[in-house]
Amino acid sequence: MQELVKKAKELIESKEVDLLIGYQSDGEKGAKPLFVKNTQQAEKLIFNQYCLNNLVTYLKRPDVKALKKVAVVAKGCDIRSFVMLLSENQVSRDAIFIIGMTCDHVVSPDGTGENEKCTTCKVHNPHLADVVLGAPVPEKIAKDKPVHYAQLEKLNAMSQEERWAFWQEELSRCIRCYACRQACPLCYCERCIVDFNTPQWIDTRSNPRGNFAWNIVRALHLAGRCINCGECERVCPANIPLMLLNQSLQEEAQEKFAWEAGYDPESQPPLTTFRKEDDEDFIR
């Protein structure tokens, strides 16, 4: 990735940015985040199909926010989360330099085959960036075509009792490490609801009650915001299929509010607005 290293060195040398967040290789088949502050570190920068991390998540951190300007290496999917941060006024556009990478696909979290999220990707070519690197990739899905999540089908086909049993089993492994929250680019609250204790809305014990409430609130706070980057599920040490919850709400946002998050920074997320004619079949 000569282009990337060159651009990074330019940005660092000219002092245009104080910090550049990109990827470095991690073993033969892997990549991990790299914080670049000098040109020597920039030499280590790479970009390939193993670059799974959504680096936009670091932009929510207080020490990164405090810097004058930060550059981030981002794929189209990651940029969708940046768009959400913009529309929620969490970052200033001028303070971030987006190095958009064209991307055909990344590997699945276990390193075998194409990542499932890439099959529904509409932004193989970054839709918002200060510079785009890499050869253009043909888009496979039209922008206005609703996304269909294959994984959800099985869950939707279950009875209510089966779904209950399924989730109780899955969530029993939750150890409440909050990796899902910390890795999420859109979980940016300075104080998470789970860290409040007067009143204590969510049991902090990793018992069935606490785990259920925590996972309800995590998914609900991402309703209409989640951009399907899949980081929560990937980082979960307990292998809980968290994306099923997020995708279910994404589907609902599409069906009910014709909304997909992370494409247009000017449009309003669905839970910050309404239409008078919104569907209310479920209300008596």
């Binding site: 790299l34 914080f35 150890i175 409440r176 490490c177 929250r181």
Partner: peptide
């Protein structure tokens, strides 16, 4: 340098 990419979850400790 070595730990700035830590995003402060508790997976490692747990």
């Amino acid at each position: 340098e070595v730990a700035s990419n830590c995003w402060s979850c508790a997976a490692c400790t747990y």
